[in-house]
Design a protein around this nucleic acid. Structure first.
Length: 837
RNA sequence: GCCCGGGUAGGCAAACUGGCAAAGCCAGCGCCCUUAAAAGGCGCUGCUCGCAAGAGCUCUGCGGGUUCGAGUCCCGCCCCGGGUACCA
């Protein structure tokens, strides 16, 4: 090996193998669950939990993984070196549909394919030199993990937070299976392209809607990007308003509706139900419209959701032949069924106010229904016919508007009118204030094989029975046939399905659906804290040591689902007193995507996929890692460039060569005292870089500018081969120390060459204040805001002094001439601006 | 439609708090080293004048405004990207 090593050449594969081997052998990145080092006067180390979203192991890692883990690793290293005890674990989100589809196609069992992929991912994380505490490694498909996923399911079941109900789900008629929402692309099955249908099926749900308000309110507590919080707020979709009861006198049935505009109640001139509303057929029965209603509803419920949901399309509907009573006017208003009303939101029925709602207006026009204006800008009187005003802005109610044509409420502004009408309804028993959400309960059952079994049995005598905790895990059996046939593949495993009832000991059948993989990943960050605990999912005291995650890092694609589900889990578990915090992820960083060289999202169909493997082979892991962080702001998308990475490689080579040269000449690498001339410039540059990199890492994750600062430092050393040895050694060792979070192998190597020490055991460098500010600075001189000259001035000079210097400067004098100076602005240690007329 | 991002040299970008616009990387051009190539190094790279030193001018999507001073703040618009939408 040594014979092959040509002197003077940076060979990353040798350097990287050396340090990876040492870190693995010494288990350098493992941390204890006990705070602080033993010994007298030990101060408990400040903890930091740095976590990147766990990968779904499929094939081998791609360039997005490299960026994700390079980014988290830089933060983890930085936190360690500022004295924190850092938990930085790794695991695999191993269950999921792709492995199962692959099994159907190739015959390779999901378990086998998944474990092969896990081995590949593990290999590459080592090869990239990511500083992981491998003693905590987990995979969600292992019984030792999913035993506790099942345990959590039972805890939720116990509390009534996991329940079973019939619901409309997405069904693919070709593949004979339900699909997750995310497996439906534009109304079609992502696998076979068939048009997806709606089906009523009994499914398992988690009652996340119970937590809607807390999920919304607690967004205030966490340090997340505003736009991610906004996405969660929109998803929860809290609306305040009222529930108002409209009675169908003929059938003596009350129909509640939800509205955000109770102030417009006098303008409700008709009433509309969703086609899925269970009473639609009952209402139409015996009327002249019965047949028409059946036809309309049958068409509407089979129409694809993207067609039906098109807001641009003409409003359609059918009269039901019945009326309901508007509770405030007492008037009878006609009932309709129309597909623009959704069963999933509110009560599946609406009061229609065509004067103040665009959709109702369109419907009223199509069906020639009366339009009655009941709200108008303050001061504006109308006759109440209102068709002209109806096209005005359909705005939320405000104090600048008042109620008209609204009986006793006329003249009130819209806000107080709204309140007064709700109070009146409440007193009359015809309604009450109410809140509605867009958030739905989380459908967690899947008719799929490769997932965590739901630990529930159906007993002939006892009904739905949870598996007893001491019989967990309910192991996923190996089967031969993964092909879905309209029921879950597990149903074919007869020996497994037939079991004993944990309550009565009688015959029972196991639930054959498995859990959504988002369940597995909603608590993995808890398991890392206590990963080898085989008596419990975790020890609550250990969670107190590490949780919450201090810095979570991942892609935006999980802004809603994963991040919302995890927050729900933590809140539910906190309510059960199983843990002691309300939010799992204190801070979140959403990294941008690496796009293909053509600027488009990487995809095999486009043929623009860049794989990490050839990059690492050619330039080394350090260059690959440093490049993906140097390419641009880490939260922004950036296109891959095959040539730009060469620049990073050149920079690392140059640093290595400096280290190699200087290592041949022994001596310390501390900051030399009282440097002068070029030496001083070098020492100052090194201190400037320390300050710059520290700020960029600690305050704003500006990896790109931090790396640029180290480049500047290296270039500076390189440009001054004549500088004194101590200064050059100090500057080079500083560069190695600062580059370590990005290029850990090279940082370690160069630092060792110069000092014989291990850089990760060194505290993060602190800039010498005396070396940050020079004795003189370049004073910028402006006349009327334009730069006209620059002169050297002593740091800390007084305003008068700076003013004198400015007026004396040649470039200033030629522009001031004999013009009248009206004002002089002095910014100390920076500039002087002379204003002339 | 609504809600977020973003628009700066040939490309990616920097300028964090209103104070020298363009650090760093790439690409391009010229040169050094070399028998040659690779690797490495040096210099130039908004416009005009000038042999040069230098001088002048322009400039952050467009149009206004505030300010001694605006890429940065305010108002109006254009373009690109993402999220979301018959949610009553």
């Amino acid at each position: 090996m040594t014979e092959d090593r040509r002197p003077g050449r940076y060979e990353p594969e040798l350097i990287e193998a050396k340090w990876q081997e040492l870190w693995a052998r010494e288990r350098t990145w493992e941390v204890s669950n006990e705070p602080g080092e033993p010994g007298p006067g030990a101060i408990p180390a400040e903890k930091s939990y740095v976590l990147e979203m766990l990968p779904y192991p499929s094939g081998e890692p791609h360039i997005g993984h490299l960026k994700n883990y390079a980014l988290g690793d830089a933060i983890a290293h930085f936190h360690r070196r500022i004295g924190q005890s850092v938990l930085h674990p790794m695991g695999y989100d191993a269950f999921g549909l792709p492995a199962e589809n692959n099994a159907i196609k190739t015959g390779v069992a999901p378990r086998e394919a998944t474990e092969r992929s896990i081995a590949a991912y593990r290999h590459w994380f080592h090869r990239w030199g990511i500083s992981i505490d491998w003693s905590r490694e987990i995979a969600t498909h292992e019984p030792s993990y999913y035993r506790w996923t099942q345990w959590i399911f039972l805890k939720l079941f116990e509390r009534g937070l996991a329940y079973r109900k019939e619901a409309a789900v997405k069904w693919c008629p070709h593949d004979q299976t339900v699909l997750a929402n995310e497996q439906v692309i534009d109304g079609h099955c992502e696998r076979c392209g068939a048009l997806v249908e709606a089906r009523q099926l009994e499914q398992w749900f988690f009652r996340i809607t119970d937590y809607a308000d807390r999920l919304l309110d607690d967004l205030e507590l966490i340090d997340w990007p505003e736009y991610v919080k906004a996405m969660q707020r929109n998803w929860i979709g809290r609306s305040e308003g009222a529930e108002v009861i409209f009675r169908c006198e003929e059938l003596e049935i009350d129909y509640p509706v939800f509205t955000t505009r109770p102030d417009t109640l006098f303008g409700a001139t008709f009433f509309v139900m969703a086609p899925e509303h269970p009473d639609v057929f009952k209402l139409a029965a015996g009327t002249a419209h019965e047949r028409e209603v059946h036809e309309y509803v049958n068409h509407a419920v089979t129409e694809s959701s993207d067609l039906r949901g098109d807001a641009e399309k003409q409003k359609t509907g059918v009269a039901l032949g019945r009326t309901v009573t508007n509770p405030v006017t007492g008037g009878q208003i006609p009932m309709f069924v129309a597909d623009y009303v959704l069963m999933e939101y509110g009560t599946g029925a609406i009061m229609a106010v065509p004067a103040h709602d665009q959709r109702d207006f369109e419907f009223a026009q199509a069906f020639s229904l009366p339009i009655r204006q009941v709200v108008a800008p303050v001061g504006q009187q109308t006759d109440g016919a209102g068709s002209a005003a109806a096209t005005e802005a359909f705005v939320a109610h405000s104090e600048d508007e008042q109620l008209i044509n609204s009986g006793q409420f006329s003249g009130m502004n819209a806000v107080e009118g709204s309140r007064a009408i709700v109070d009146w309804l409440d007193r009359e028993g015809r309604g009450h204030a109410s809140v509605s959400y867009k958030l739905r309960d989380w459908l967690v059952s899947r008719q799929r094989y490769w997932g965590c079994p739901i630990p529930i049995l159906y007993c002939e005598r006892c009904g739905i029975v949870p598996e007893s905790e001491d019989r967990l895990p309910v192991e996923l059996p190996d089967i031969e046939d993964y092909q879905p046939k309209g029921h879950a593949p597990l149903a074919g495993a007869q020996d497994w399905v037939n079991a004993r009832c944990p309550q009565c000991g009688g015959r029972a059948r196991r639930e054959t659906d498995t859990m959504d993989t988002f369940v597995d990943s909603s608590w993995y960050f808890l398991r890392y804290c206590d990963a080898r605990n085989d008596r419990a999912a975790w020890d609550r005291r250990v969670l107190r040591r590490w949780m919450p995650v201090d810095q979570y890092i991942g892609g935006v694609e999980h802004a809603i689902l994963h991040l919302m589900y995890s927050r729900f889990f933590v809140k539910a578990l906190a309510d059960m007193e199983l843990l002691d915090f309300q939010e799992p992820f204190q801070a979140l960083f959403t990294q941008g995507m690496i796009l293909g060289p053509d600027g488009y999202k990487m995809s095999s169909s486009r043929g623009n996929v860049v794989l990490p493997r050839p990059i690492v082979d050619r330039f080394g892991a350090d260059a690959a890692r440093t490049y993906v962080l140097f390419i641009g702001p880490a939260d922004q998308d950036a296109a891959w460039s095959d040539t730009a990475i060469e620049g990073v490689h050149r920079f690392l080579s140059r640093l290595w060569r400096l280290g190699d040269q200087l290592a041949g000449e022994p001596g310390p690498a501390e900051q030399p005292g009282d440097p002068t001339g070029v030496d001083e410039a070098l020492v100052r540059k090194a201190n400037w870089a320390i300050e710059k990199v520290t700020g960029d890492l600690a305050e704003r994750f500006a990896f790109n500018t931090a790396i640029a600062a180290v480049m500047e430092l290296v270039n500076e050393v390189h440009r001054h081969p004549g500088a004194g040895l101590p200064a050059r050694r100090f500057a080079t060792a500083t560069a190695a120390s600062l580059v370590f979070p990005f290029a850990p192998h090279l940082g370690s190597e160069v630092f060792e060459l110069l000092t014989g020490r291990r850089v990760w055991e060194e505290p993060w460098p602190v800039a010498d204040p005396a070396m940050l500010q020079a004795d003189t600075f370049e004073l910028v001189l402006q006349v009327n805001g334009k730069v006209r000259d620059r002169v050297s001035a002593p740091t800390g000079a007084s305003r008068d002094e700076l003013e004198r210097l400015a007026l004396a400067a040649r470039g200033v004098r030629s522009h001031v001439d004999d013009r009248e100076v009206t004002k002089i602005v002095v910014v100390p240690d920076r500039l002087v601006n002379i204003v002339v007329r």
